[in-house]
Simulated assay, not measured.
Amino acid sequence: MKEKKAKELLEKYLWGTATAQEQSLVDEWYNSIEFKGKLSADQKQRLGSLAKKTLQARTRPILKVRLYRPWIQAAAAVLLIVLGTLWLTKNKPGQADQDLIVVRNGSSSKLLSLPDGSAVTLHAYSTLAYPQQFTKSERRVFLREGAAFFDVKHDEKRRFAVATSTGLAVKVLGTSFLLKSFAKQNDILVAVSTGKVAVDRQGKTLGLLNRGDQLLFHKGTKTFTLSKNTEVKTVPIHFNGSTISQVARKLAYVYNVKLKLDPSVDSKLKTTARFNSSLSITEMLSLICKLHQLRYKVAPDQQTYILYK
């Protein structure tokens, strides 16, 4: 849809003058970001309310005759922001207006700590939105504009999902990756430092990326390319009194391998150490084994590592 038509459609939708077919177009776009079912009357009311609030914050009080066109021009961007907000909070009715944290960065990077303990390095001129509290089933954030490096805390029960204004989303359990999505750039980049991530767009999986992989999505052609990242960002891997079982689970996700403990190993062995992801899996296991006087072996599949006494 061309920008002019999108702006006209948005205006009709927000003020309740859109036809049934036009409303379906907006609902269809919204549903493409993983919402099952159509917008309720309450959600539409919140959509309009949020749009007004955002526009009022972005525009100056000037004459109405001069305000109308800038309002429409800003509205297309606001639609993506508001729908992204509803995507973040759709499991908590009424939350969008009050519990959302929006961080807009200036000319320098900023380190953020999310409610679950995950760390985000928000790059310059970037905006990230996230709820004050994640739900019990999943963790959602919305990169409205710019770039951010996510070091996600591992949580087997709750996946972590990052949405963008283009409909592209990244989903993980616990890993670290870079996501670049600037409105004025033609491509979106996802580069994985540790673990494994899934990249999808409008419900369709584009690729499963492992450590060192990157995906470049081309906005114009709606196509993508997969390649190896030659400059993988190093992230810290710290253990503070973690049991050897917890260590094994974390390393399995960081390196995307299977890690098992032989019955001869005391699963309650405690580990306090500071490493980083520049180490290979074999180097990491060698250090862990030295700490606890253990050994490791590689199974025939070459993807399973077994620690034993």
Rank of each mutant, 00 (worst) to 15 (best):
G212W: 04
V235D: 13
D151E: 14
L173N: 08
L143C: 01
Q45M: 09
G37D: 08
A51L: 04
L208H: 13
R66C: 07
A41F: 03
R159W: 13
T59F: 13
L63P: 04
W29G: 04
T223N: 10
I237S: 00
R211K: 15
A18I: 00
K2H: 14
G146Q: 03
Y68D: 15
P93L: 00
V265R: 07
V170C: 00
L128G: 06
T166A: 09
V197T: 12
E231C: 05
T272Y: 04
L178H: 06
A18Y: 00
L114V: 10
A163F: 08
T221F: 00
Y305C: 05
K258A: 09
A20C: 06
S227D: 09
V254I: 13
G167S: 06
V152H: 09
T205W: 00
R69I: 10
L39S: 07
I101Q: 12
E8K: 11
T304A: 01
L269N: 09
T121I: 10
A198Y: 05
A198E: 15
V141S: 03
E283L: 03
Q302L: 11
P131T: 07
Q21H: 07
V170R: 00
A147Y: 00
L143H: 01
L287H: 12
E11V: 07
A129I: 01
Q133M: 08
K136D: 14
N240L: 08
L179N: 07
S165R: 12
D213H: 07
P263W: 02
K297P: 01
T225F: 02
A18D: 01
A163W: 03
S107E: 15
D151K: 13
D42G: 08
L208Y: 13
K5L: 13
S193M: 04
T304C: 00
K297Y: 10
K153R: 15
A147I: 00
V170L: 00
V257G: 02
V26F: 07
E28C: 06
L10G: 15
C289E: 01
I281A: 07
L50P: 03
D213I: 02
V162Y: 02
R60V: 11
P300M: 10
L100N: 06
V235G: 03
L294W: 05
V190P: 07
L25S: 11
E28Q: 15
T175N: 06
Q302Y: 09
V247T: 11
V257M: 04
K250R: 15
K204E: 11
L307V: 08
P236H: 03
L47I: 14
T225N: 12
S108F: 09
T194R: 08
Y308L: 02
S118I: 03
S32F: 00
A191I: 01
K268L: 14
S113D: 11
T234A: 09
I72C: 08
V65K: 15
S242A: 15
G84A: 02
D97F: 06
P115W: 08
H238D: 14
S49T: 10
F160V: 04
P131D: 05
K7C: 08
L216S: 11
K2L: 09
Q293P: 05
A124T: 04
